[in-house]
């Protein structure tokens, strides 16, 4: 039994993120990639903080969540690049985002859990999900195609 007196509301949850093919999120060249997880490889630690201000957000899409990386300290966000939203990283503290009086929508993702997997849908661009290719190594991107070519279901692995 361990006791934590930390301000849990100010300490994000830390997770590794994988798909069901045992590929893990890693950071390569400032780009979030998914690669088969190997023994010698340390997946990126993803930080999650639920948004506390739910008033202006949709209720049934999942828990609005800020997603960040532990090291380097940055956050995932969506922005429109031409026709479609793209997933980017911005150097920003997830705790600062969490402390905002209002939801910072580009940085928010509806976290929806089904069974053991989760999907992350952009709050700023509803219908667009964080996705990866179905095999090999590839970067993370945004898609509206669900259950087809790309994988949008991820597993959050608690670090021991």
């Amino acid at each position: 039994m361990t006791f934590s007196s930390a301000l849990a509301s100010e300490v994000p949850s830390r997770r590794y993120v994988q798909d069901l093919n045992h590929r893990a999120w890693v950071l390569q060249d400032q780009t979030l990639m998914i690669v088969p997880r190997k023994e010698r490889m340390v997946p990126i630690t993803v930080t999650l903080m639920p948004c506390r201000h739910l008033e202006t957000l949709e209720k049934d899409r999942g828990k609005p969540m800020y997603l960040g990386l532990l090291e380097p300290n940055c956050c995932l966000f969506c922005k429109k690049d031409g026709e479609q939203p793209v997933l980017q990283l911005e150097e920003r503290s997830i705790i600062d985002l969490h402390a905002f009086r209002e939801p910072v929508k580009p940085f928010l993702f509806y976290h929806s859990e089904t069974g053991r997997t989760s999907t992350f849908e952009s709050v700023a661009f509803p219908g667009w999900f964080i996705a990866v290719c179905s095999k090999g190594d590839c970067p993370l991107f945004m898609t509206q195609e669900l259950g087809k070519t790309y994988i949008t279901d991820f597993e959050l692995i608690r670090q021991n």
Binding site: L20, H22, P36, R37, K38, E39, M41, G136, I157
Partner: peptide, 22 residues
């Protein structure tokens, strides 16, 4: 030196391992 893959099997009715041959 190791090229071993690291995978997780969750206790329960079923799970799977993946052979990464790409």
């Amino acid at each position: 030196l190791s090229d071993d893959y690291q995978q997780i099997l969750r206790t329960g009715p079923s799970d799977s391992l993946t052979c990464h041959l790409y």
